[in-house]
Design a protein around this nucleic acid. Structure first.
Lengths: 215, 215
DNA sequence: CTAAGGATCGGCCGTTCGGCCGAGGCGGAA
DNA sequence: TTCCGCCTCGGCCGAACGGCCGATCCTTAG
């Protein structure tokens, strides 16, 4: 069961290099190597490779557009797409992943990771370049430290109120949920307003989402 | 400049296997191989290796606790920690990353990825197992498809209102921001309430966060 | 013991919100 | 042209919100 790969990159040398690396693997076969995005879409639809390696910067259609066409939301039989690029800008990463990419490699990653990325994509997994991953992880870990400067930490009870408010509960519903009176809820809310510097309950809800108090 | 590695795993065979793989690399050296979490912390603090490979399941202290002690928030000179485990449960992944881990490997990943993970960690990057990464990416990409069933799509202008409301703006502020009257804002809000089935503006804000309209 | 902070309650008051009616302009589709 | 959807605007009104004052109980720290 060989893994059939399509390569799309506007640079001849890159295409050849990738092809040599992958064809040297006994279980991989490059079935197409194209130079622009439009060609990538048509060839990918015709050949239906197991994995598509796409550059970001390409003529006619860039890699993100091609990804959306081949693997984006709403595509019936999405292909596995790995973005391979020189640029590690965050906008590209998030754009690619939102458009359906299952991998993101930088061209300085070395042949080992390229092979592993193809193998992972063929298996339905996703390999992301370590230098990119570290920033993705920072994004994941960020919400746990305070998003806004909160000098005064909220008490447990206040956090209960915040969570319910962020869900859209009225003060009356919060009171019923916590088995306390409406007055108590309003008192807690007053403390919350002061501590967070919020001006209305929506700002409290926004803080809750940003800080990871609710998910 | 060799990469000095500490291995912590309660299984003798795993420790030996990892050590053989890593010692076979010319630029890597295993400086310690311990069997429980407490030993891992003390040895890591004494030897200060470049990379720590930690199992989740360990006696005395589990891998997450060790990670927090060595690389967690608030640690002055955090060490690079890569979690290596058999279990790919989400709770472990997120727990590890929140506690400061810079890598997450499954034991079925093959020696190639182990080596790459150590190399990445030593460079300050992070390599995560492809089968785990694919779920992390789903978490990132999930918000963009509709979170709640929205039969009636919002118009562009209504989305403008939603975004400002979700930021905590009052109706008056929304009106000023969009250069329309207060009445217009309230009319738009009425349509939004109907379309989303929301009962108050906080539910609109919550929908905005969940659906990715705001980030 | 005393002080401090958290959780619990109450009342008063002005502002904002949200629902419900109405209206007109404007562009595209039938 | 005639419709229809979208954006624009106005008034009215009850309910909810948010600020401000007060108070009691309890636990923990000093």
């Amino acid at each position: 069961m060989t893994i059939r790969v399509l390569i799309a990159d506007d640079q001849q040398l890159v295409r050849t290099g990738f092809q040599m690396i992958l064809d040297a693997q006994p279980d991989m076969e490059v079935v197409a190597a194209v130079a622009d995005g439009a060609e990538a879409v048509s060839e990918a639809r015709r050949l239906r490779p197991d994995v598509c390696l796409l550059d970001i910067r390409m003529p006619k259609l860039d890699g993100l557009e091609v990804t959306r066409a081949l693997a984006g939301p709403g595509v019936e039989n999405p292909l596995r797409v790995v973005i391979v690029t020189t640029f590690d800008l965050d906008e590209y990463v998030y754009g690619a992943l939102r458009h359906g990419a299952t991998g993101f490699l930088l061209k300085d990653s070395g042949p080992t990771l390229l092979i592993e990325a193809v193998r992972a994509a063929a298996a339905g997994d996703a390999l992301v370049s370590p230098s990119v991953t570290v920033r993705l992880l920072q994004h994941l870990a960020r919400p746990k430290q305070a998003a806004l400067p909160v000098n005064d930490p909220l008490t447990d009870r206040e956090l209960d109120v915040v969570r319910l408010v962020a869900k859209g509960c009225t003060n009356q519903e919060v009171a019923a949920e916590l088995f306390v009176s409406l007055s108590t809820v309003k008192t807690h809310l007053g403390s919350i307003f002061t501590k967070l510097g919020a001006r209305n309950r929506v700002e409290i809800a926004a803080w809750a989402w940003e800080s990871g108090v609710v998910s």
